[in-house]
Amino acid sequence: MGRKAEFEGNVSFDECSKEEYIKQMDDLLASHGLLEKFVYNTEIWNTVTGDDGLFVIKLDEDNIVKAKNVIVSVGRMGKPNKPGYKFPRAIRPRLNFNLSNVCNGEKVMIVGGGDTAGEYAYGLVELEDMQDCTVTLNYRKPTITRMNPMNTEMTTKYLDNGKLINKMGVDVEGVEVDGDPGEERVKVNFTDGTSEVYERVVYALGGTSPVDFLVNSKIDVGRWDEPLMDEKTMETNIKGLYTIGDVVTDQGSIALAFNHASYVMNDIVAKNK
């Protein structure tokens, strides 16, 4: 708190401590009768456009919310955790931390046992424009223990039917270059003495950023995994889908987030006139 800011919209706050800020915002939301609109303890994995043109937000197996517009206001981009072994320079472009570089037809291995790993793995299997990929899930433990029930169910389903290749219960010892210069692939050496060559390895070892959500929602991202959008309206490549706040800026500015909210609402109102 405590930084001077210029507010361009209707929402502002007085400089104060974090506790006082939360109190200010709570009071503001209450005064507008908005507290009942907030649903906590609910993590959203993606949003997709349905046949009726509305965005579909799946809360669980039985419950969905459909929306005319979606505003993504999730947290700051984080740095993903990396494995302890070295990445040889020649294959670094093939060692990734999200799916944004995966091409259809590639032989891909996802590394990790958490929700992100599961979402990447079964997400890649399900994506229509990635149907020709061969997807392997590698996790050092033999069973899934860290995913939420939905991701466990989805991942298990594809492991069981063979659409997702099971390489669990073994760790990666290291990676090395396979192939001639210009055609390098990733040779993965496992702790059980086996090796396998992949065209791409995607690490999902925690500490990941909201890029998971962005990619799952088919929002175009830039070189640094930032969402690409119109800076005047905050609208992404998907009409009616907006990204604001820390997910689009590394400045950690509440004032910017408030201003982004104003830009979005101006756009939505203008389109509804």
Partner: peptide, 12 residues
């Protein structure tokens, strides 16, 4: 999606 400062401001 997200009830931080940006999400709250959007609601208002």
């Amino acid at each position: 999606i997200g009830a931080g400062p940006g999400g709250m401001a959007c609601a208002i």
